[in-house]
């Protein structure tokens, strides 16, 4: 509604074809830690709003009242030790209030002990490779055909007509709901970064280094992401799709994969 109004105000013809909804904020995600991340984000945000109201409020009052055209005479004070101690101390207290819960979350984020399963993710220019440890499932995952055709310059295909334009892959990663999944990242060439906003995981895939992250999905569904570290020409075209399914469906998926091979 709002977006249609704004776009028609701007005189754009896109309004009719776009079906996307306005996303204004970080999603809460589907893991306990993605929710904690979201809460931290909102906590700092509201602190910023509060500080902003005070600082901008005082400034705006001053801009309105203390202007020469209103006959304001300038005062002569040029320092106040008390005031300066107060506005040094208050930010310090706010920062402590922010850092305590943040540090708690960070400790949890790093605790990848005792995973139920592990997946090795390797970045390539410009696709991802997934290998499920403890099984021989491994595959490359690249941009879906539909987007490959539409993305070319002068392709003649309207991106709005492509479902999940640039965010769909041929082979998604499948994981079971409720399992602690450990991800190990590395790269075959340059640095990439594996990012799925709904899992609140972004980790660099670096040649010669193995990085680690973990998640435990609470909900089933399809979650999309993209490479976040500039990795060359097709950096914008190596999306990530994670499908969280019920454990039974996951077992069936593993079996069908084994049968294929």
């Amino acid at each position: 509604m709002i977006r249609n109004t704004i776009l028609s105000l701007l005189g754009l013809s896109l309004a009719g074809t776009a079906k996307a909804d306005w996303a204004l904020n970080m999603p809460k995600g589907i893991t306990d830690l993605s929710l904690e991340t979201y809460n931290l984000h909102m906590m700092v945000f509201w602190w910023c709003v509060a500080i902003g109201i005070v600082v901008f409020g005082v400034m705006i009052i001053s801009l309105i009242k203390h202007r020469k055209s209103k006959g304001a005479e300038s005062a002569t004070f040029s320092h106040s030790t008390t005031a300066e101690i107060i506005w040094t101390a208050i930010p310090v207290i706010i920062l402590i209030l922010i850092s305590v819960p943040t540090a708690e979350t960070m400790v949890k984020l790093e605790d990848s002990r005792n995973p139920d399963m592990s997946i090795v993710i390797t970045g390539y220019q410009w696709k991802w490779h997934y290998k499920y440890q403890d099984s021989d499932i491994e595959f490359f995952s690249s941009l879906a055909r539909s987007s490959v055709e539409a993305r070319r310059k002068e392709s003649g295909v309207d991106p709005f007509s492509v479902e999940n334009y640039l965010l769909d892959v041929d082979n998604p990663v499948v994981v079971p709901r409720g399992a602690k999944v450990r991800l190990l990242f590395t790269s075959n060439d340059v640095i990439h970064s594996w990012w799925v906003v709904g899992l609140a995981i972004k980790k660099d895939a670096i040649p010669g280094i193995v990085n680690e992250a973990w998640f435990r999905a609470n909900e089933t569904g399809t979650y999309r992401g993209q490479c976040a570290e500039l990795c060359g020409k097709d950096h914008g075209y190596m999306p990530i799709v994670v499908e969280v399914v019920e454990p039974e469906a996951y077992a069936a998926w593993v079996n069908s994969h084994d049968a294929e091979q």
Partner: peptide, 8 residues
């Protein structure tokens, strides 16, 4: 700015 005599 506070209690100054501002012009813009």
């Amino acid at each position: 700015m506070w209690r100054g005599s501002m012009t813009f």
